[in-house]
Amino acid sequence: MLFFKRYLLPRIVQFLVVVFVGITIVFIVPRLTPVDPVQQVINRITAQGAFLDPAAVDSMRKSLTELYGLEGSMLQQYFAFWGRLFRGDFGPSLFQFPIPVTQLIMTSLPWTAGLLISTTLISWIVGNLLGGLAGYFKDRRWAKVLDNISMVIRPIPYYIFALLLLILFAYLFPIFPSAGGYSVGRRIGFNWAFISDVLKHSFLPATSLVVLGIAANFMTMKLIVSNIVAEDYVMYAKAGGLKESKIAFKYVLKNGLLPQITGLALSLGQIFGGALITEIVFSYPGIGTLVYGAINSGDYNLIMGVTSLSVIGIAGATLIIDLLYPLFDPRIRHR
């Protein structure tokens, strides 16, 4: 009970406040942009050459505004927005009307989640392991080679690296498909033909994320470890004649991973935001592509849907890591 009151409750309150403030900002910001979704639709219709008399335009604007949930003052819209949110409804997409936003997100989310969860985990595990070992055995040949490689890869801007992969392995040597999540015309189903097709399509985007992710984790971990090897307890373990492998894993790596755990949780929380550049470069059908289109077309509801999910995702990840952290570091207590 004391645990609940002293530790859990403040963190849950904090979580709720972050979500509330975040979603409020999400509500306000799109309304400050000059893009008016109602005007967007009217423009589209008039651009197709149809003649509309002003009265028809007016009534159309009125009904569209009502349809989109944009009638009334900001405050009324705001309350209506929260009301819908509690029912898990972000309203219809304005651009792909009348498909509900939730349905659009649910179609895109598995693609992004599959790609990002696997690549984030792989690059975290591999990067930290290599970085930790290279930091501990920093005078070994392989450590120096790895260090040089990551030093070259790390500063490459992500979009250039992604484009490079695309040009090399989809255009010059067409080993992998250049776009999409699966071949056009293939039926979605749980069978090997479909899965292998998906893996083939996601190989390049995954590689681009994993390679840069490993390099980033490698360098951070190597830096952390270079501080830890100077700690007294590592020196003491050496003086005590402990085996190198034991010192490396139990004394150095284990301590070095503590700050990295927070990083992992945050990047997993960010999955709901999608991998914007990756998905655009590889035309991958995930959340990133979805939100990119939404921003271009002024699709308020869709933007708000995706961003709200992202806010909840990150705040949720922070909350979970806060609760789990004492398991990893005994110095942090549930007080």
Partner: peptide, 16 residues
């Protein structure tokens, strides 16, 4: 031969 380091306040692994 065993060694007691300087500032051995931190000589023990903090997470075990």
């Amino acid at each position: 031969i065993s060694y007691i380091p300087q500032g051995s306040m931190n000589a023990l692994n903090p997470i075990i």
